[in-house]
Amino acid sequence: MIKILTDNWSTIITGFEFTILSSIVGLLGSLILGTVFALMEMAPNKFLKFIGTAFVEFFRNIPLLVITLFFYVVVSHAVKINGFWAGTIALILYTSSFVAECIRGGVNSVDPGQMEGARSNGLTYTQAMIHIVLPQGFKLAIPSLGNQFINLVKNSSILSFVAGLDLMYQANVISGANLDPFNTYIVIGIFYLLLTGPLSVFMNHLENRLR
């Protein structure tokens, strides 16, 4: 196992870097997009609500691999898009549908009196959302968001299907060469733990601090 690590150190580190990059971009992207679509889902405007709901239901109910291959094989005819970005964009779209549901759940569990108080105070719906309801909703959504972010890191292994140069891809390459998948995947599993472990601890810490 140590030999796998030393023989393939730079390959593994490259994969680790791409997995981290995809996870960070995916996390930020899905947080922003997820919030936007959660707001659309909850909007009083029927058209926005339809778009938001349609988006969430669509991306939540098709496999991540299908979205990934769609970008890699189909979209790339029109716009040049490599495996890393095809996978990462798919990851953002897929995860943001779940993030939207977490945030909607969080916002829905904010006391309706908060909105009423703000509206009676003269704030518009949007102002009340931004200043009062959304910050409280986010706080309530943190535990479920944490789960989604850990899933996101693990789901980034989808990149391996489209040569996205991530950890899982490198694991496949290494085990294809050394013919020892057993130990190779154990080593790679440990690297995933190095990412998800601290993320998990951080989310727990955030949850406790904000309680």
């Binding site: 006391d111 009196g113 908060q114 009423e116 108080g117 703000a118 509206r119 009676s120 105070n121 003269g122 704030l123 518009t124 200043h131 009062i132 910050p135 409280q136 706080k139």
Partner: peptide, 29 residues
């Protein structure tokens, strides 16, 4: 919204903004 700036409301359950300090509660609107 215009009307509500001229007609204030005080609720049974206060409905203060839980994520803001007392001063910010008063000064936000």
């Amino acid at each position: 919204n215009q009307l509500r700036t001229d007609v204030g409301m005080v609720f049974q359950h206060f409905n203060l903004y839980n994520n803001k300090t007392i001063l910010d509660n008063i000064m936000l609107a």
